[in-house]
């Protein structure tokens, strides 16, 4: 059986001046198995968002590739299986949540009626139903983040790629999203998400990968990483690994 998301020796460079190039990803290989919640961790500028942008087909890898159910990620049909939440949801602010979800449903290939049913259900779950006809520009940051989550989930995709899903949320919002992710996990959805918040990782993830300066430093379970069956000490283990990598670089 193939993996829902597979990074195969993905490398990406960006220009850093006229001739010089900066390597953001260096032969990154990851396999996210079906029904798994996979946490993608790393400090700022480690290459997490670039990896997600390649997985979503927004940018193309220089070497290697990402495959969604064996379809190259840059092909639009690969995104039929994926729901995506960016760190800062990019929304058409003049439109209402109902209009945006209508569009997302149609773009995902589901009928108008099914879209409206799903939209109402999702908005209710995310405490946005009473605001569904209001323009998005009147929403708070947390409401926009929750709407972005609803847009990712419409069409019930089997894979969810979430870039910092808790960003901009208050404790109640975080709790709500955490519960939804746990619910999605119990329904067998595959979730790949990047985050800085290690507490969320401890609660949600089966597997983690730690990336630093474009290289994967660790890929495995949390308990193997921390050496503790209760997923304790994740933060200290994470900091030690990154610091050790920095010392190695300098030496």
């Amino acid at each position: 059986m193939t993996n829902p998301v597979s990074f195969q020796k993905v490398s990406k460079e960006f220009p850093a001046g006229l001739i010089k190039k900066h390597r953001v990803l260096d032969r990154v290989s990851l396999d996210i198995r079906e029904g798994e919640v996979f946490g993608f961790l790393g400090p700022n500028g480690a290459g997490k968002s670039t990896a997600i942008n390649i997985a979503m087909g927004f940018i193309i890898a220089d070497e290697g590739g990402v495959f969604i159910h064996d379809i190259p990620a840059f092909q639009p049909r690969a995104r039929k299986y994926v729901g995506y939440l960016p760190e800062h949801p990019c929304l058409y602010e003049q439109l209402s949540a109902a209009e945006l979800l209508d569009f997302c449903g149609a773009a995902s290939g589901i009928s108008g009626r099914a879209t409206r049913e799903q939209a109402d259900r999702l908005l209710e779950r995310l405490n946005l139903l009473s605001f569904k006809n209001r323009p998005v520009r009147t929403y708070s940051k947390g409401m926009k983040q929750r709407l972005g989550f609803a847009m990712a989930m419409i069409g019930d995709p089997p894979v969810l790629i979430l870039d910092e899903p808790m960003s901009g949320l208050d404790p109640l919002g975080r709790n709500l999203i955490t519960n939804i992710i746990l619910d999605l996990k119990s329904r067998g959805k595959t979730i790949f998400f990047s985050t800085h918040i290690l507490n969320d990782v401890e609660k949600l993830c089966d597997h983690i990968a730690i990336i630093h300066q474009g290289e994967i430093l660790y890929n495995g379970t949390i308990s193997e990483f921390t050496g503790s069956p209760d997923n304790e000490n994740l933060e200290s283990s994470f900091v030690s690994l990154i610091n050790a990598s920095r010392v190695e670089e300098h030496s």
Binding site: C90, A107, S108
Partner: peptide, 17 residues
């Protein structure tokens, strides 16, 4: 330029569409 386009192309929508 503000990447709002990603709201559209994160669905099975090609660039030409």
């Amino acid at each position: 330029h503000q990447k709002n386009i990603r709201m559209v192309i994160c669905h099975p929508v090609s660039r030409w569409q």
